[in-house]
Write a protein that binds this DNA or RNA. Structure first.
Length: 720
DNA sequence: CTAGGGTTAG
């Protein structure tokens, strides 16, 4: 007997160190010896084997060890439940939980936390309720877990807060910390501050400080976050990777590159730049602060042993720097080759890159892959990204189909589909969905209102636009921002209400940005108001001295008004200042390859055929009544004759891309062309004729919206 | 209990 107890004791000790060190080899041989030996079966020992396998991610082995346990107790169940929860196999975890004769505090806490991880608020809450009804003892973990599970519902968090207060659980720092975090994540910085300030010096731990730094960062209070960080240093807190990562999110949020650079230096000094959390924070900071992806790439290569999140940070960085969208797809494939399984976040990023590229064939591929991959957790964000992808690829039907098939919608889903309809110029549908949203008391966001106002602007709904704009602050509780004002100026200007637009820009509560002046300038061009155009162009220039848009607009307006000297003066100014017009560029996908066309660029291998086709087409078009509008030819000098201007017009990138599509696709197949700038007025007219003559549906997505040409008409109704 | 990645507009 003494011999057995000695053996048991030494077994326990070795096994414990195996668990601590994840020493699977020793642990397994210990298990074999244990099963073959005469040691009486001990539930205690068996439980520790379950723990060991769970820690080493050997789920089946852990379950096997559980089955071999003669008299499993609560502890055995809890160990196995934790193992399944870790692998997000929540149903098995639940099944095991239901088999426990008398679940204890740990059983409940484990399952609540598992539900919290999955974002399953209802299940977590019902367990919590069950605990209270049973009169079971709770602890700080129970509360933090259930608060995490309620992360998106402010109302519930408030209730839990008062419950924690009345039952004394708010004395746990962890409970206060999670309240602080989730108040902030729900947009209520004031409440987060109150929790933080209410804690007092002695209670606050480093977690509280880090959480508050992140809270300030999320609300774009860069200075406050930094002040808090300095305070931490001053008080002698050790600056670890948690703090570094927290401060880095602040720089990403407020786009403070110089601050980010300073902390990169700090990270290198402490070696934390190789840490995955800090490293991905750095990658994200460089991507969001406009440092380009080359800096991000450098950090990426220094990180010791990357993981899925680090890869996703890279993919998202490429996708957010829109011109690097092709690299985003490449990065996704590199990640797959490196042996990582994409998760929902990987798909969201890569699908958004496909939206930027308007590449329906690749977008569909990722859609199929995402379905095959059975993404864990909620797929809603993947579906949201897909709705946008289909819509931006010109395929509103599939976007709408997916929208109706989705099991669940949230604000982003609605914003996406509303924006889709707005960009396609289907204002009625946008407004309908918006009214449905309000009726279902889903709160619109500032983005919803940008979409709604631009839907009104695209379709000439002046009164409705004004109505919604005036409702913003009082009814929806959304403070109008620069974007909303720009939409309103666009709305009024396009409708010809130039003086009203001017009044709005003059009475804005903050100084108008370049977008506002650009909207006004566009309206002036449409209605030929030279005087106001000069004012708008000058204001624009002061804000963005290197932008070619105001020069080009003014010059073409002077030409159109036959003020040749003025036009020449502007062009000379532009030359002298070294400002160049951003070249117009259009692309079209054919057989899964993207063909790019730039005006006056003859590098495409089939350019001869394309131009011959265009020449023939122009003859037919002119016979049908097409008259080239040479005002849209941007000439570099003043000796250019009308004939030459006409030829220049014929070489605009969107015409080349459309001709290429008509020439090399099957008859009847609809075309999708994307342009980086706004479509030119002459091309808009020309493509109408082309759609009628070639009997094709031709969709052009420009920088503003979709133009869907069919049978000689455009879906925008020439209101653009 | 705290730190890294995401979708929507212009």
């Amino acid at each position: 007997m003494t011999q057995f107890s000695w053996t048991l004791q030494s077994f326990r000790q070795i096994l414990k160190s195996c668990i601590a060190n994840k020493d699977l080899l020793t642990g397994k041989s210990l298990h074999t010896i244990y099963l073959k030996s005469l040691i009486p079966s001990s539930t205690y020992l068996s439980n520790h084997f379950i723990l060991l396998y769970s820690k080493c991610n050997l789920l089946t082995t852990a379950h096997h060890a559980f089955n071999q346990t003669h008299e499993p107790n609560v502890f055995s169940f809890n160990a196995l439940i934790a193992a399944y929860a870790k692998e997000s196999l929540i149903h098995v975890a639940r099944h095991l939980f239901d088999q426990i004769p008398q679940p204890d505090l740990v059983s409940f806490n484990t399952l609540i936390n598992a539900y919290a991880d999955r974002g399953d608020t209802l299940s977590a809450l019902s367990l919590f309720r069950e605990m209270r009804e049973m009169g079971l003892v709770m602890d700080g973990f129970t509360f933090s877990g259930v608060i995490t599970a309620c992360c998106n519902h402010v109302g519930l968090i408030r209730q839990l807060h008062s419950l924690a207060f009345s039952s004394g659980f708010d004395s746990y720092v962890s409970v206060k910390n999670s309240l602080l975090t989730y108040y902030s994540k729900n947009g209520i910085l004031e409440e987060a501050e109150m929790v933080f300030n209410g804690m007092g010096e002695e209670v606050r731990d480093e977690v509280s400080w880090n959480s508050m730094i992140v809270a300030y960062g999320q609300h774009k209070r860069g200075l406050k976050a930094l002040a808090l960080y300095r305070d931490m240093v001053h008080r002698g807190f050790e600056i670890d990777m948690f703090t570094l990562a927290s401060v880095l999110t602040t720089f990403s949020c407020v786009e403070d590159l110089s601050g980010g650079l300073q902390f990169h230096a700090k990270a290198i000094k402490t070696g934390f730049n190789k840490n995955r959390h800090v490293g991905s924070g750095l990658i994200d900071m460089y991507a969001k602060c406009g440092a380009g992806m080359s800096e991000s790439r450098k950090v990426f290569e220094e990180i010791c042993g990357s993981d899925l999140v680090v890869w996703n940070t890279m993919i998202s960085g490429y996708a957010q720097n829109k011109e690097l969208s092709v690299e985003a797809l490449e990065c996704f494939r590199q990640m797959q080759r490196a042996g990582y399984w994409p998760d929902d976040c990987s798909f969201v990023c890569v699908i958004s890159a496909c939206s930027n590229l308007s590449s329906p064939s690749q977008g569909k591929q990722f859609h199929a892959l995402a379905m095959k991959s059975e993404i864990p957790s909620n797929q809603i964000s993947v579906n949201n990204a897909l709705v946008t992808m289909y819509s931006k690829c010109g395929n509103l039907q599939d976007a709408r189909k997916l929208f109706h098939r989705m099991p669940e919608h949230n604000t982003v889903t609605l914003n996406s589909i509303i924006a889709g309809y707005a960009q396609h110029g289907i204002g009625t549908e946008s407004l309908n969905l918006f009214e449905q949203m309000l009726a279902a008391s889903i709160a619109p966001t500032s983005i919803t209102l940008v979409s709604i106002l631009s839907a009104c602007a695209h379709t000439g709904r002046v009164e409705e636009g004004k109505k919604y704009f005036s409702m913003m602050k009082d009814v929806f509780g959304i403070e109008p921002e620069a974007e909303h004002y720009s939409c309103m100026i666009d709305l009024l200007g396009r409708a010809g209400k130039l003086s009203e637009a001017e009044r709005l820009i003059d009475t804005m509560p903050f100084s108008p940005g370049s977008a506002a002046w650009a909207a006004l300038l566009g309206a002036c061009r449409k209605y030929g108001n030279m005087e106001l155009a000069e004012k708008a162009a000058n204001q624009f220039l002061q804000l963005e001295p290197t932008n070619a848009v105001p020069y080009v607009m003014l010059a073409s307006m002077y030409s159109a008004a036959r003020k040749w000297e003025e036009a020449a003066r502007i062009r000379k100014l532009m030359r002298d200042r070294g400002i160049r017009k951003k070249p117009g560029c259009s692309w079209i996908e054919l057989n899964k390859r993207v063909h790019v066309f730039v005006a006056e660029d003859n590098s495409h291998p089939r350019i001869k055929e394309i131009q011959m086709y265009l020449d023939e087409m122009f003859v037919k078009m002119k016979r049908a009544g097409y008259v080239p509008d040479v005002r849209w030819a941007f000439v570099k000098d003043d000796e250019t004759g009308e004939q030459e201007k006409e030829i220049m017009l014929a070489h605009h990138s969107e015409k080349l891309a459309v001709a290429f599509g008509l020439l090399f696709t099957k008859h009847g197949e609809p075309l999708l062309v994307v342009k980086n700038l706004r479509i030119c007025g002459d091309c808009h007219n020309a493509i109408k004729f082309m759609s009628a003559i070639a009997r094709r549906k031709i969709t052009v997505r420009d920088a503003y919206r979709f133009h869907c040409f069919e049978d000689g008409r455009c879906s925008c109704g020439d209101y653009w």
